[in-house]
Design a protein around this nucleic acid. Sequence first.
DNA 1: TCAAAAGTGTTTCTCATACACCCATGT
DNA 2: ACATGGGTGTATGAGAAACACTTTTGA
Lengths: 250, 250
Amino acid sequence: MTETPDRPSGPFPAAVTVDLVILTVRAEALHVLLIERGKPPYLGLPALPGGYVRPHEDLDAAAIRELREETGLDGHTLHLEQLHGYGAPDRDPRGRTVTTAYLALGPDMPAPVAGTDAGAARWTPVNDALAAGFGLAFDHGGILTDGVERARTKLEYTTVATSFCTEPFTLSELRSVYEVVWGLPLDPSNFRRKVTRTAGFVEPTGERRATDPGRPAALYRRGDARELVPPLLRSSSDVHRPATAPPAHP
Amino acid sequence: MTETPDRPSGPFPAAVTVDLVILTVRAEALHVLLIERGKPPYLGLPALPGGYVRPHEDLDAAAIRELREETGLDGHTLHLEQLHGYGAPDRDPRGRTVTTAYLALGPDMPAPVAGTDAGAARWTPVNDALAAGFGLAFDHGGILTDGVERARTKLEYTTVATSFCTEPFTLSELRSVYEVVWGLPLDPSNFRRKVTRTAGFVEPTGERRATDPGRPAALYRRGDARELVPPLLRSSSDVHRPATAPPAHP
DNA sequence: TCAAAAGTGTTTCTCATACACCCATGT
DNA sequence: ACATGGGTGTATGAGAAACACTTTTGA
């Protein structure tokens, strides 16, 4: 912190909050948990869940607490990481407020607990929430954009994609996570190879699960590895190119 | 922000600061800019430069301002990015203080301006500053560790390494940045190929610079590219293996 | 027995590694 | 001329992309 004494700057009171970008994959689309504001400002508008940090609480602890309060889920079973700090002077009309945004990634979750908070929590497709005119409260549109971008890049070089899956899961389910978050189709067999060849990415359980039609799929659990080397690049790599016109001669 | 009304939590006043991890490469080692604290707490101990955010100032603006005040350098010519927020309740004995740390990377800089601040600023080798018993003020040891780690990984998949070089620079100088930050020797010819084949990483100026003995090196400027795909991995790739004992027969 | 999904094998090609070798300059 | 660093060329091998093919189930 290191203050700079004897100059026009000095400590002034600000409110400290945490906000949560909670993402999950459901119905083949990336969803974010939004609540409806129950009081001004931005009354009735959708917003990210969050709240004030308590006087004797660390930022991470506040994020875990808010996560449980809003979703009923244990912050230790989800992936939770600090995203970014936001402190524009006018971001809250009530007064100077600095927020630390957190990114949470989890499997398709039970219907969100009707928050002790005013408005009920709702899963919203990210594409809808980011559409122009949707109107998130405060600067939450920008925060959501940053969170989604972080999630996309983190899939490349970490194993967090498994956080979106309920254990045990199949490799098709894991691949679907990548396809939904990146918005790209991947080649199933090459994806399988990369995942199973990376030590600690997934661990087979030995069990299988029947699918409606088709061969039962082997089940896996999350492995110990967190970093992914080499990374699973989404650009120019592993993309199953759609059926384009084949070259001239048959 | 989204307060949670009618519950034991609510806004309480906290001080808001920014701290800077300013790194540079000089004398074949990574250095960090530290100031000496001129007043309690932690009087006389080294600390990261930083200060209070002003009442009508954004976090980024505060970081740029502090950077100029402490180094005399323009925040727009250096690489500057938000690092992480730190808000442990007891991190400052004077009261609740939440800080947002920023990471700045720049070329070997002019001797730091004797800060308007109390203690003079000093370049310190990162290895010394992180050694047990060096004793940085507050939680600045942890912040510095996080900053160095961020710098190491960012060299892999972005072009920020060029921020450490004074333009124009040679490819040997750029390679030296990687070697110093990663602590690994790299193969000069393969490094050259990767850098020059990545569009927008560096742009040749057409000029050359004489070296003491040896062929003059071509000079380059930073390119437009910020992301580096494919990344320049530091693990198991491009490492020039040191002279180990050769196989049995000569 | 057919459709659908899981899973394996294989060819082709790209790119990184390792290292030999040539170039340009100061002493 | 020779030592020193800059810079180019290339043989080898690992791994990715593309896709044909086999396996296992439900209807």
